[in-house]
């Protein structure tokens, strides 16, 4: 026990380690600001649009519209994200399609978010009582207008907590992009660790930074939820 203690102290809390911690902070945060955060935001926005389209296709009354959506969701949910990333970045060049690391990551993460979020959006739409559709129809609305004016605003409120969950998972999943050479936060940690052999220190530091980002995001989620409170059916 005391051996373990002294090891931890010597690696994490020595003066040298503290210096390394501080000096690595800037490159990691830079990696976060340049890649982790933009990757998360872009993939989430593109993913959401894709998800909305997919959800609409899945609730369509026309079979041939539903089927591609079902296959897409099933394929993405049924395969590991890491494999998807590798197919886009390392696989496609065999077809002479060469995409840079960052856009590759955006493509893979957007497709991934699109599939998961589409199920959330679909479930949120289905959770709105049938009477709301009917009320829309009886004031003369078409299905599309009812969806847009009546159902989606209410479904949005329902979908915020699960979508926030997806968003926070996405922040952490972007660390996988380090494996296709995107110099995001975790890649920076790996690079410094490889140079200094201070793996524990740097990976804990990276973990702390992810934690801070996710904590801030959960605060934002609460604010959004409170602002959309009135959209909730009671």
């Amino acid at each position: 026990m005391s051996l373990l203690n002294s090891m931890l102290f010597s690696t994490i809390l020595s003066a040298d380690s503290w210096e390394l911690f501080k000096s690595s902070l800037l490159p990691m945060i830079t990696g976060g600001i340049k890649y982790t955060i933009p990757l998360t935001l872009i993939a989430f926005v593109v993913g959401l649009l894709l998800a909305l389209l997919t959800a609409m296709m899945r609730i369509s009354s026309i079979r041939i519209v539903r089927i591609p959506a079902i296959i897409y969701v099933s394929a993405v949910r049924g395969t590991p994200l890491l494999v998807q990333l590798f197919i886009v970045f390392y696989g496609l060049p065999n077809l002479d399609i060469k995409i840079d690391p960052f856009p590759s990551a955006i493509i893979a993460f957007s497709l991934n978010v699109g599939a998961y979020a589409s199920e959330i959006i679909r479930a949120s739409i289905l959770s709105i009582p049938k009477g709301q559709w009917e009320a829309g129809y009886t004031i003369g609305m078409t299905r599309t207008t009812t969806l847009r004016r009546i159902i989606l605003p209410q479904a949005t409120r329902v979908s915020i907590p699960p979508l926030s969950n997806t968003f926070i998972s996405l922040v952490k999943d972007t660390s996988l992009a380090s494996l296709i050479l995107v110099t995001e936060l975790f890649r920076k940690a790996q690079e410094i660790a490889a140079r200094t052999y201070e793996f524990l220190l740097l990976y804990v530091e990276a973990a702390l930074l992810y934690w801070v980002i996710c904590f801030l995001l959960s605060l934002i989620q609460e604010v959004i939820e409170r602002r959309l409170e009135k959209y909730a059916a009671k």
Binding site: G131, Q132, A135, T138, I139, T145, K230, A232
Partner: peptide, 29 residues
Amino acid sequence: RKSGMVFQSYNLFPHKTALENVTEGPLIV
């Protein structure tokens, strides 16, 4: 569009005020 309907369970739009519930049809449709 010839008829208006009043439901047993009201089915008001919960995200709209009383006034907005009433204006929705004439305004949007």
